[in-house]
Amino acid sequence: MQANCLARPVNDAGPGGVADVVRRTGGLQAQTWRGAAYAVRARSTATTSANVTHAQETERSVVRGWFMRGTLQLVATEDAGPLLGLLGAKLIKDTERRYGELGLPQRIRDQAADVLEEHLLAHGPGNRAELADVLVRAGLIPAPKGQAVYALIRYAGLLGRVCYGPGETWVAVSDWLGKPLVLEGDLETLAHRYLTAYGPATARDFATWAGLPVPQARRAITAVATESFDVDGADLHAVEDLPGCQDVRMLGEFDAYLLGYQNRFQDLPKSIFPGGGMLSPAVIKAGRAIGAWRHADLSTDLFEPADLTAELADLTRFAA
């Protein structure tokens, strides 16, 4: 909790606080915008939901796109190029079978990336339906429906050419950020940032979080770790031996704290991890999950007692 900013060391107000949280955590899970926003709230004391939107849409100090594991993440803008430089090619390779099932050979994918970028540069943000029509008119897909549309948008994103813009639209990165991304990154730097935000952790945890081969991840972790711990026979590594945190925190859906490791979330009860790729809002205390809660009415289902007064008040403040 301490490493992952859940002891709330980030006190900056406004969009600057949002960027600071995202930078310190190495990126936040963003399958849903609500989940990303509440992840920021859990790690700061002076930001609001509107600040998160402002940081992404107006200030553009954070970027929403496909990064670690090829899933949607909110990352600091300066980290987007290095992350894709390290991870993009492998994530594309890992998706080759699915591209084949969808009838999307590399020739079609590369043409689609060109077409999508050119359209977004000329017309600004576009939603899925609009971009689907663009791909159909270019003769790259037969119909404006199906999973091929999203797969081609994501492919352009993994090349660093497309990212999310306002709401559920996409934009050309070079236009949105004012310049193209430089796809160059250093693996040891990424390993150090991971341990700073998630340590103590194993090399396999880092491999799972990033989407890297385990041997490559292990070499990087070994090179940067300055602390090691034996926990139930497993070697865990860190860059700092931090004090514990006894706080209670209400995490949003798909929170990075639960997804930042190889398999820790898999032992959670069905109220938090129902399966099917879902991860519901959770209540944690002293690092352990002690219950679930619901966004709609802030109702809770606790496995053990906890005082949620301060967290419930802060959720109301954040949403105001």
Rank of each mutant, 00 (worst) to 15 (best):
237 H>P: 00
65 G>K: 01
265 F>G: 00
42 A>V: 07
169 T>W: 07
41 R>T: 07
82 P>G: 10
250 M>S: 13
311 E>I: 00
245 C>V: 12
159 L>F: 07
19 A>D: 12
138 A>I: 09
156 A>T: 01
303 F>R: 09
166 P>L: 04
298 L>I: 07
243 P>W: 07
314 D>Q: 14
288 R>S: 12
201 A>S: 11
16 G>T: 08
1 M>A: 14
36 A>F: 12
314 D>S: 08
152 L>Y: 07
1 M>Y: 05
127 N>L: 02
151 A>L: 06
177 L>V: 04
40 V>K: 08
130 E>Q: 15
257 Y>H: 10
283 V>S: 06
313 A>Y: 06
259 L>S: 10
93 K>Q: 14
12 D>A: 15
189 T>I: 11
209 W>P: 03
27 G>A: 03
291 G>V: 00
103 G>M: 07
30 A>G: 03
91 L>F: 08
103 G>W: 09
55 A>M: 06
7 A>R: 03
186 D>M: 02
57 E>C: 05
15 P>H: 10
311 E>L: 10
33 W>S: 02
234 A>G: 02
35 G>A: 11
268 L>I: 05
30 A>Q: 11
242 L>E: 08
164 Y>W: 13
111 Q>H: 12
27 G>H: 08
72 L>I: 14
310 A>L: 11
222 T>R: 14
307 D>M: 11
211 G>N: 08
136 V>T: 14
214 V>E: 15
283 V>A: 01
31 Q>P: 10
182 V>L: 12
113 A>G: 07
317 R>C: 01
62 V>T: 15
93 K>F: 01
4 N>F: 15
197 A>W: 02
252 G>H: 09
89 A>V: 06
302 L>G: 10
72 L>P: 01
229 F>H: 11
80 A>Y: 04
168 E>M: 11
128 R>L: 15
40 V>C: 13
39 A>I: 12
138 A>G: 14
139 G>H: 03
254 F>Q: 09
306 A>D: 05
55 A>K: 11
76 A>Q: 06
25 T>K: 01
68 M>E: 08
64 R>C: 06
233 G>S: 12
108 I>K: 10
285 K>E: 14
301 D>K: 13
251 L>H: 07
85 G>Q: 13
90 K>Y: 03
140 L>N: 07
292 A>V: 03
173 V>N: 04
283 V>E: 07
142 P>D: 13
242 L>C: 09
236 L>Q: 12
35 G>C: 09
169 T>Q: 08
207 A>N: 09
227 E>Y: 01
182 V>C: 04
74 L>K: 02
190 L>G: 00
288 R>H: 06
309 T>C: 02
260 G>I: 10
16 G>R: 15
237 H>N: 09
21 V>M: 11
36 A>P: 05
115 V>K: 05
83 L>C: 04
269 P>Y: 05
255 D>A: 10
255 D>N: 15
239 V>S: 04
255 D>V: 08
60 R>V: 04
47 T>I: 06
2 Q>K: 12
166 P>C: 00
29 Q>V: 04
191 A>W: 03
163 C>A: 15
300 T>H: 12
210 A>F: 06
206 F>W: 05
225 A>W: 00
310 A>H: 13
225 A>M: 04
160 G>F: 01
264 R>V: 13
171 V>Q: 05
200 P>R: 08
164 Y>L: 09
